[in-house]
Amino acid sequence: MALASTLAFFVVAYLVVTSAPGWPRVQATFFSLDVARRSFPQILTGLWLNLQVLVVGGLLVLALGLLLAVLRTLRGPAFAPLRLLVTVYVDLFRGVPLIIVLYLVGFGFPALGLQGAPTSPFVLGTTAIVLTYSAYVAEVFRAGIESVHPSQRAAARSLGLTHRQSMRIVVLPQALRTVTPALLNDFVALQKDVGLISVLSVVDAVRAAQIVVGQTFNFTPYVVAGLLFVLLAVPSARIADAVSARARRRQQSGSLL
């Protein structure tokens, strides 16, 4: 039944779109099989670069985000300046659009002409993405850390564990379990945002598509690149769903304190 209604919906949608007066033109400029075939290899090569940015950036985002969250949850007046610094950082990079961070880091930083500073758009682009995303992920981690009940910390400290040991052995493992669905969701968002590094003239999937568009005056390569990004995102989206469902079941089945 669900399958039948889904099929029927798509058949109707297909008929409506293809009977529109402008359809032949749209089909030729956006869905040209010939252009798709010709642009595919370049776009795929470009996507490999996006994947590298995704993996390297993703790992750095996790590390930096966790560090920022731990710093922000430090107690005591001695850490007040550090907490303030992290708060400013998070506010700043959550507020500025990623594309502006990319411009500032990608073009502004090399213009300083510092000795030995990186000039590779790959490195600079990844840096910009890490700056922005670590601000988001830091907040996710912080929410997780604060969701662990204070009595857990009290129990850990009463056993003689230091603040660091309590954090590492008792608080963070529980926090991580809570925030995994949210982290996976951010990962799915990151997967498409790595396409934005194309503004730094690195030949990633988006830039490769753009080049072919410029040569052929046909927009099909964008559609190809878009589909490839979707294919990339689908598995992580399903994993995120499965993990959330598991977390929900666990919460319903027993009290986690």
């Binding site: 009595s151 009290a154 129990a155 850990a156 009463s158 003689g160 230091t162 529980q174 986690l256 304190l257």
Partner: peptide
Amino acid sequence: ADRVRRRMGVVFQAYNLFPH
């Protein structure tokens, strides 16, 4: 304080076992 706490055992009203 960490060294002092090692010498004591505390049991809480809500058990506070580590669930993980």
